[in-house]
Design a binder for these strands. Structure first.
Length: 218
DNA sequence: CATGTTCTCGGTATGCATTA
DNA sequence: TAATGCATACCGAGAACATG
């Protein structure tokens, strides 16, 4: 990765001292929270090896997350719980998590670099970059911190709600996960607004899923 | 044999163009 | 005008295969 002219370098060069990179994880799974992280690095500081969390192995992510935490000026975490996801919808929940991560920072950043789309209602200027986690260092760092944080949380939730395999699939849709939902029903951390979870509640198999979204169940 | 890479699969929301 | 299709955006696991 590492884009040639670092965006952060340009911002630091014009005198900004607190530039935050923000990214969220956990949009896709059927269970568990959406987690966002915001990272503010000291001007001029880059962590070697930081890249899009998706292209890193779990071991590399753990190591890098530790180093990012050690070297960052401040790190903020934003959490949106499953019941909020059901209430807001997953798209708004992602934005909400991003906003909370920025608000959780120990300093108010002068500029925010965000993955994907802009965060409505943010107090400071921002730029959004689709696929930003693969070429903006601060966003990549945030993606690593968020991913490691969520994986740890899902392992904890696996102990709280054993049998679903959360520690393995992190709440994502796998055959084993579908089978567990059908067998045990949804747990308190399942997103009941998501189609496969609704289907399990209604007692139908995933081959009988309705073609159109079912409404009026919340 | 352990690790890394690629491909296919799974989830939902938005916005715009097209169609009935 | 309202409904629909499609490309865009985001998230990731798991299997198969390649490599050292």
């Amino acid at each position: 990765m590492t884009a040639a002219p670092h965006l952060e370098t340009l911002l630091w060069r014009v005198g900004l001292k607190h530039v935050a990179g923000v990214d969220e994880v956990g949009m896709g799974p059927l269970a568990g929270p959406v987690i966002a992280a915001a990272v503010v690095m000291p001007p001029g500081s880059y962590v070697d090896g930081v890249a899009d969390s998706k292209v890193l192995t779990a071991a590399a992510r753990e190591r890098l997350a530790e180093e990012i935490h050690r070297r960052a000026l401040t790190v903020g975490i934003g959490v949106v719980e499953p019941e909020e996801i059901d209430r807001l919808n997953i798209y708004q929940a992602g934005l909400c998590a991003l906003r909370r991560a920025v608000e959780a920072l120990a300093v108010v950043p002068e500029f925010v670099l965000v993955d994907g789309r802009e965060i409505p209602g943010l107090a400071m200027p921002q730029s959004a970059y689709p696929k930003g986690d693969s070429f903006v260092c601060s966003i990549a760092a945030a993606s690593i911190v968020a991913k490691v944080h969520r994986d740890g949380l899902m392992r904890d939730l696996d102990r709280l709600y054993p049998g679903y395999g959360f520690a393995r699939h992190m709440g994502y849709s796998t055959r084993a996960h579908f089978a567990a939902i059908r067998e045990y029903g949804p747990s308190p951390i399942h997103r009941r607004s998501f189609a496969p979870v609704r289907a399990a509640v209604r007692g139908v198999t995933d081959t009988q899923l309705p073609l159109a979204p079912v409404t009026g169940l919340d």
